[in-house]
Every structure is written in structure tokens, then in C-alpha cells.
Simulated assay, not measured.
Amino acid sequence: MTSLETELKAFIIETLNLEDVDVNDIDSEEALFVDGLGLDSIDALELGVALQKKYDVRIDAKDENVKTHFASVRNLANFIQASGKQV
């Protein structure tokens, strides 16, 4: 697990006010939505806005890859790193 993945897990927990969830409870490859962590579309919107603010990344809802980017913590980390942002 990379430090960015750990940071993202803590960020997700804090941003979405996930009670009774610890960083160690989230597998980096676990699905974030429906199965896995069980987030929903409202959570996706909140998380997307927060990620754009914190990491200065552009998330285009019309981009066909957006679901892939948000599939797991690892995918989010890869997306942020690929965007060339310093974290």
C-alpha cells in the first residue's frame, strides 16, 4: 500500500463521515461503490468535489473512464498520480 493510498483512505473516511470505518478496514483494491465499501452516488459526488479541491484534479463526469477511476482506492491513487499533481 502506498502512502497516497493510505492518505486517500483517511480522506474518504473523513470526507464522507464514515463511522466505525478505519483505514485498515479498506482494502486498496476493494470496490468503493455498491459492493465493497458500499458508497452511493451522493457519496461519489461529495468525494469527487473534495478530491478536486484537495488534489487539484479535473474530474469530468462525461469521461468514460470516470467509473474506472473511482472503482477503488488504488485506481483513485493512480488517477491522481497520472494527472501529474504533486501529493
Rank of each mutant, 00 (worst) to 15 (best):
L45S: 03
I12F: 11
T68M: 14
L37T: 05
Q81Y: 04
D35Q: 11
I59Y: 02
E19N: 14
I12T: 13
A61Y: 05
Y55Q: 03
K62D: 15
I59C: 02
K9W: 09
F70M: 11
E14K: 15
E14Q: 15
L45N: 00
D22R: 14
Q86G: 12
E7F: 08
L76N: 04
K9S: 10
D40A: 01
F70C: 07
E7G: 01
L51D: 01
F33I: 00
N17V: 12
H69D: 13
V21R: 10
V49P: 00
L32V: 09
N24P: 10
L32E: 06
A77I: 04
G48S: 13
D20E: 13
S41Y: 01
N78A: 15
K9D: 10
L76G: 04
L37P: 05
G36V: 09
D60R: 05
K9T: 09
F33A: 01
V73F: 10
D20Y: 07
Q52M: 13
D56R: 07
K67I: 11
K67S: 13
E30R: 12
D63N: 15
A77P: 07
V66P: 04
V66G: 03
S41C: 00
N17E: 15
S83F: 04
E19T: 15
A10R: 13
L51R: 01
S28N: 14
L51A: 00
N78E: 15
Q86L: 12
A10G: 11
K9P: 08
N75P: 07
D27H: 13
D60I: 06
V73D: 10
K9E: 09
G48V: 05
Y55F: 14
T6H: 13
I26G: 09
E14M: 11
D60P: 02
G84I: 02
L39N: 02
L32M: 09
D63V: 07
E14H: 13
E14N: 15
A82L: 06
V21H: 07
T68C: 11
D56H: 05
K62G: 10
A50L: 08
I26C: 10
N75H: 14
V49I: 12
L8G: 07
D40I: 00
A44T: 03
A50R: 07
K54M: 03
D40M: 01
N65C: 13
D27A: 15
A44S: 10
D27F: 11
A10Y: 05
V34K: 07
E14S: 15
V57R: 05
D43F: 06
D56V: 00
N65D: 15
K54V: 06
I59D: 02
F33L: 01
I42L: 13
V34Y: 06
L32A: 05
D63S: 14
V66D: 04
G36E: 08
E46M: 01
D20K: 11
D22Y: 12
A50E: 08
E46Q: 06
G48H: 04
G84H: 02
D20P: 00
I42R: 03
A61V: 09
T68I: 14
Q52R: 12
Q81A: 12
G48P: 03
A10I: 11
I26Q: 10
